[in-house]
Design a protein around this nucleic acid. Sequence first.
DNA 1: TGGTACATGTAACATGTTACATGATTAG
DNA 2: CTAATCATGTAACATGTTACATGTACCA
Lengths: 181, 181
Amino acid sequence: MTTRPLNATAASLLGFLHDGPMTGWDLVVAAEKRIGGFWSLTQSQVYRELTAMAAAGLVEAGERGRRDRKPYAITDAGRSAFAQWAAREPGHEVIRFPLLLSVMFGKHVPAERLADFVAVHRDRHADRLADYEGRRASPWDGAPEDEPYARATLEFGLAYERAVLAWFDALPRSIADPTPA
Amino acid sequence: MTTRPLNATAASLLGFLHDGPMTGWDLVVAAEKRIGGFWSLTQSQVYRELTAMAAAGLVEAGERGRRDRKPYAITDAGRSAFAQWAAREPGHEVIRFPLLLSVMFGKHVPAERLADFVAVHRDRHADRLADYEGRRASPWDGAPEDEPYARATLEFGLAYERAVLAWFDALPRSIADPTPA
DNA sequence: TGGTACATGTAACATGTTACATGATTAG
DNA sequence: CTAATCATGTAACATGTTACATGTACCA
């Protein structure tokens, strides 16, 4: 079968499945909460990857449970595919930040509009920062061996959101507040 | 024709073309330099978008020049499509940082390997930071009205890379340096 | 005269997005 | 009893990636 190497999205699903069977829904929720800050995926992808991985023998569907829940369990082939993925050097990060395109091409964007965009996004980031700070303050509830790793990723989120917020706050008035009351 | 709204990649090409005709190659280089820190695109996409935009009447190809250069100029329709794009609220940013997946699933990654990955990526980020710092120190060479906007995006890059670097440096030894000499 | 940077482009495929369709269960 | 949330899934399409093919001009 010599399946081609896993993509990072599929790999992350297998990563979660190492801790026990989960349904597509569980995975969507877990991914959003645990890796959502630095890896985006959609519900649609999750189901697609699960179907594909089931076909490739990397996961196995179990009996449907209540509410039609369909749990998937990782197989030995899945563990081995994951291990291969984990041994390869991760690629560089990809960032797509459309607001910064608006800023970059700011001379073509109505000043008020741009300032609104900036304000809206600043708020969102403030919310995310607050969320991360809340999480850091709450007691750890996962498996003990995960603690340092999950903490490190959380610290990344915190560092990122703080930096972004500081950046917003250091924007010149010509961009952030061009029409003072 | 009521073309569907521009995607951000196409919009950014039009953004550049506001300052005069450019070839696909020029755009690839400009994009890498000017928005590469927060918007990724490939050479292949650039040519595809240009072809599509030419078909949609948003840009017009000029005469081929030396070395087969094929300059594209923005049209009025292109300017108008860009303006519409610029008026819509930009979406949230997307980050995909595979190294953080390796960290998150760290308990399944051989410790030495993980530390290597971390070291490699730390270096890359240090290089990028140095690059940004160099740029900030060099005299501004673009159009004067672009200065504040380009500066703001550069400041974002600086803030981001500094935060990332600080994050690397604050990683626990269990992750960054598990087998001390 | 040979390597590097310039320059355009296509093909095939993988991945990501959006929208829809369907139904079960729970909480108020 | 009804709205919200849970839950699965598909279809269609847009976007992104990788690999290749082709050739020009510069410069050491």
